[in-house]
Amino acid sequence: MTSLRLTFITNFIPHYRVETFRLLAQRYQTRFVLFSDGREKNWLQENGTASGHFQYTYLKGFRFGGVRIAPGLIPIAWLDNSDVTVKCLNGKFALPVVALACMARRHPFIIWTGDWSVLDTRLSRLFAKLNNAVCRHADAVVTYGEHVSRYLIANGVPSENIITSQHAVTNAFYSRPVSLQEVEELRSSLQIPDDARIVLSVGRLVEIKGLQYLIRGFAEAATARNLILVLVGTGPEREQIEALAKELKIAERVRFAGYMSPYDTVRYYAAATVFVIASVTSHGWKESWGLVVNEAFNQGVPVIATNAVGAADGGLVRDGENGFIVPERDAHAIAAAVSRVVDDQALRGKLSANARSRIATWGQEQMVDAFSAAIERVTQKRRGV
């Protein structure tokens, strides 16, 4: 561990960031300041908020007009005596408080962001301008991937200030061996015949996930194939999805598994023939990344992703190499890609092997390396090196 002191400010600790933060805390004297209670609308409440073996503080606060207000963040931002502050590009209260304090004090700060699109509303466009201004004034910006870096450069952020990261999960967790017995028990619990191929989707059942296009694409692919679609997740779109499946006469081929803990999802990936993430641009907003892609790759599952998925546009999914990238809102393209993977065993084997090799070099260590590169750049800049 170096003597450099780091203050890392974000909303809360999701389960997939515990290892990231642990590794950061190993490299630097780090304290994590958390301003939310984990009740964001895009977060599954069943997952809760996590903790870890590092220094962190959850600030008390309240919600006003949907915005989380944590008054204790104000003195922290203005009196912070760390060498560098890292702020995730979130929090309509937290972001301006921290950014303004850092700029006023000439305190080094780094922004971490996955934004590569803007909600199509006046308020969102206004906040996007403010966010881009913060990124332009930051000493460095760490991005989720190539897609975010391109977006920032197009919005005036100097390319020399941008560090492109590898958005990652804990590979050792998701690559754990899954026994044949576990897979057989899963199939039995969902009443899936032994000879049926599983098309898998994991995520919230909400509009942005493009599930109507997945259902229509699956129906087309399943016409001449023995396929079962398994949907892991919960959400308000379930009734519409069930109704569409009945309309397309494939209800008996769709299984709703409901909520599964991160640990339990691993056996679903192990049982799947192909994974589909059919996310769409919704009111101008796109999927920042889609960590389910990383999770699926860890079990060697080929992924079909739309071009509205950050992991596809950001470089993890490579079309024809470890999966397929299809246009968003295109059920026929989904059907064609699913059919190719299911029908061609040699292709499926190649995609699977490439998925495993790709994700093996796309882990938490590489992700934290990007933060280290940004921190080194900022500290050198401040020293005039």
Results as ranks from 00 to 15, higher is better:
S3T: 13
F12T: 15
P14D: 04
Q26R: 15
Q26K: 14
Q29R: 14
R31G: 01
F35T: 14
D37F: 00
G38Q: 08
W43A: 00
W43I: 05
A50F: 06
T57S: 11
Y58M: 02
K60I: 02
R63C: 06
V67R: 01
V67Q: 02
I69L: 09
I69S: 04
A70Q: 12
P71D: 01
G72E: 07
G72H: 12
I76R: 06
A77E: 01
D80K: 04
N81L: 11
N90P: 00
P96I: 08
R106A: 08
R106H: 14
H107W: 13
P108H: 08
P108A: 04
P108D: 03
D115V: 09
S117A: 13
T121Y: 01
F127M: 06
A128F: 05
K129L: 13
L130Y: 12
N131F: 07
N132I: 03
C135S: 13
R136H: 10
R136F: 01
H137W: 12
L152W: 04
A154D: 14
E160T: 10
T164Y: 07
Q166M: 09
Q166I: 03
N171K: 10
S179N: 05
L180C: 03
Q191L: 07
D194G: 01
D195L: 05
D195E: 10
A196F: 08
V202F: 06
L205T: 05
E207H: 10
E207W: 11
K209P: 15
R216I: 00
G217T: 02
E220N: 09
A224N: 13
R225S: 15
L227E: 11
L229R: 03
V230K: 01
T234Q: 11
T234N: 14
G235N: 04
P236V: 10
Q240N: 14
K246G: 03
L248W: 08
I250N: 03
E252Q: 14
R253H: 15
A257T: 04
V266L: 02
R267E: 08
A271M: 08
A272P: 15
T273E: 12
A278H: 01
A278Q: 03
S282Q: 11
G284M: 03
W285S: 15
K286M: 09
E287L: 01
S288V: 11
V292R: 00
V293W: 00
E295G: 06
N298V: 02
Q299K: 11
Q299E: 12
Q299L: 03
G300H: 09
V303Y: 08
V303I: 04
T306D: 07
T306G: 07
A311G: 06
G314D: 10
V326K: 09
D330F: 02
A333W: 09
A336G: 07
R340F: 05
Q345K: 10
Q345A: 14
K350Y: 03
K350T: 15
A355I: 06
S357C: 01
A360L: 03
W362R: 08
W362A: 02
E365T: 13
E365H: 13
M367L: 07
A373V: 08
Q380C: 11
V385R: 09
